[in-house]
Write a protein that binds this DNA or RNA. Structure first.
Lengths: 341, 341
DNA sequence: TAAGCTGTTGCAAACGTTTGCCGAATGGAG
DNA sequence: CTCCATTCGGCAAACGTTTGCAACAGCTTA
């Protein structure tokens, strides 16, 4: 059916091993022979069978990329960057979606293990133990999770959260809410810890609401609870939840940022398009994707075990404004009106 | 290194063929033997090597999914649905991004060909000839493209465009602009044809501006040209461009829908979140992804060659309003004011 | 002239499976 | 007790590659 190395060998009058070497070790074959083989190969439309090659070399030239939710706008830029970067290095990428389910995650790693040279686990929800277990079956690089001894790429969301909280404190807010993300998320713990510490250090209150699924609906559903706390500012686990909250508050006629300020995290594509435009912590997702691919492919099969931390940056837009203790509290009304348009 | 069928055979005292059959043809092995083998396999942590299996069976249990741009919000829901659906059928999915480049598309198909049982080509930009060529190397199903003899899943964007244009005509618009998408896009041709025919039949004008890359920047960049035409309504190739245009018009102080109505296509996640909320044609992308996977896997390797057409629906929001010839033109101001909030 | 390189090629085993074929064991019918 | 059918399991070839080893030619060097 398909044209194999044997067909090329026959057609060009050499042994199959010579054909093989023409592709995998060109310097070992006479230039003249090589070009002849190359010509017939081209003419016959020969393409090496990667599966067969993998069987004997043990290297598949494939990698796996496992994310919680492909449709969550946080991931596509990461996936795209990782795929492009991997392909430039002649690797193909399996993409899989766990739907936020840790057990699916584990199954997926095992199913993919034999078919890839390594797996990128993005924002895994599994326990550290499970991950430790799995790394023995296949090289793993985790993104947005810190596990000692495991190569990782993390975005310094703790720093982002601190900046966000300081921003809110600076605006005169004294009672904040953290709208927590899913349990099992390292990012969630980091944000919570960083935000809590920063608020406490300044003598402010931080109420944690959650856990929640990291989707718009969850953000919207929490509106009542948020209002119930009496807080004047909210930091959400991600932009999706922040935007959901924004919508729900709007529906209730609650002014943002007049009555409540809202900060998201991620800076997804449309954070700057909703009204009010969302103040948020930008994550370098594309860079993270590339860095993770590099880490995975870097060490032949040894254990390069570094941890790369990428900076995040607070982007101040219109969803945050002066709080009740603002030195410029008198200006609140005016500023809010201005920000509204 | 890894545990193979041979290890399991040794450990359970049977021949490797028996182990093989335990997994691939259980009814051929004595229940007692089977459970013994299963037990040792489980204990040893044996996982069949799909590459080796593929080598002999010719079926890889992988499929390829090629899209123009993973980060374009149109695709992630499709990718997610396809991946989930495929996995339920025990298939893994390679995802690749062509960055809207037709030559990358062709390379990708060839590179993936040996490693998959079939490829889903989503919104391909290649010529029909090229695709005809490639289908001889690997089973292909195209999404959003109609090629005679090739299995396809298309969303009936022509119908959607007609509905959108009728909606605009009904509002009293007589001069429309179609903001065209990329060359090579079947969808683009369909929309253009349908919109043009519908407008012409009603004695209205339709000016085509383009081609454009299907991104926000292109939509924004076309604002001047759009205004220059003197048209009062715009249909954009996709929501991204429509939203870009919306932003650019807003920056220029042009009222939407007061001065110009804008309609997008796709109904991406945030079409309903921008202000004004975008009137758009919703595409059933998730259903398309599932249908395409079904078509690909359905026929063993024969040539199921149907074409599935999925319905689209116009979603009327706030970016469209009465035009200069509206029977209710007198109400324009009031309606616009209302819509604005 | 013998010995030793170097560069090029062929030979054959190996990778982890599946599967057609054959033989052994079992059991029921005659 | 013999014969046949059925069920089960082993044997070995095959899938398309890679790669260590050996063979050989044409050199150079001593």
């Amino acid at each position: 059916m398909a044209v194999t190395i044997r067909d090329v060998a026959k057609a060009s009058g050499v042994h199959i091993s010579t054909v093989s070497r023409t592709f995998s070790a060109p310097h070992l074959v006479n230039p003249e022979t090589r070009s002849r083989v190359l010509a017939t190969a081209e003419q016959l439309g020969y393409r090496p069978n990667r599966a067969a090659r993998a069987l004997i070399t043990g290297r598949t030239h494939n990698i796996g990329l496992i994310v919680a939710d492909i449709a969550n706008p946080f991931f596509p830029p990461l996936i795209k960057a990782a795929e492009t970067h991997a392909r430039r290095r002649d690797y193909h990428v399996f993409v899989a979606d766990t739907d936020e389910d840790p057990s699916v995650e584990a199954d997926l790693v095992q199913a993919l293990a034999k078919q890839v040279d390594g797996i990128l686990l993005c924002s895994p929800r599994m326990s550290d133990d499970q991950i430790e277990q799995l790394r023995r079956e296949v090289p793993l690089v985790v993104v947005n999770r810190m596990i000692t001894g495991l190569p990782a790429v993390v975005m310094d969301v703790g720093q982002g959260a601190r900046e966000a909280v300081r921003h809110l404190l600076g605006l005169g807010h004294r009672h904040l809410v953290y709208l927590a993300g899913p349990r099992g998320s390292w990012t969630n713990r980091e944000i919570r810890r960083a935000a809590g510490a920063t608020a406490r250090a300044a003598g402010a209150d931080l109420t944690v609401l959650g856990p929640h699924q990291p989707v718009e609906e969850a953000g919207a559903a929490s509106a009542e609870a948020v209002l119930g706390t009496g807080a004047t500012a909210v930091l959400a686990y991600n932009d999706l939840m922040a935007i959901g909250l924004l919508q729900a508050l709007q529906d209730r006629g609650v002014a943002v940022p007049g009555r409540i300020s809202v900060v998201g995290i991620d800076d997804i594509a449309y954070a700057g398009l909703v009204r009010p435009r969302l103040t948020t912590v930008a994550n370098p997702t594309a860079a993270a994707g590339r860095a993770a691919v590099d880490m995975l492919l870097q060490h032949g099969d040894g254990g390069a075990t570094g941890q790369v931390t990428l900076q995040t940056t607070l982007i101040i837009r219109n969803s945050t404004g002066p709080g009740p203790h603002s030195p410029a509290a008198a200006l609140t009304a005016e500023v809010a009106a201005h920000v509204k348009e």
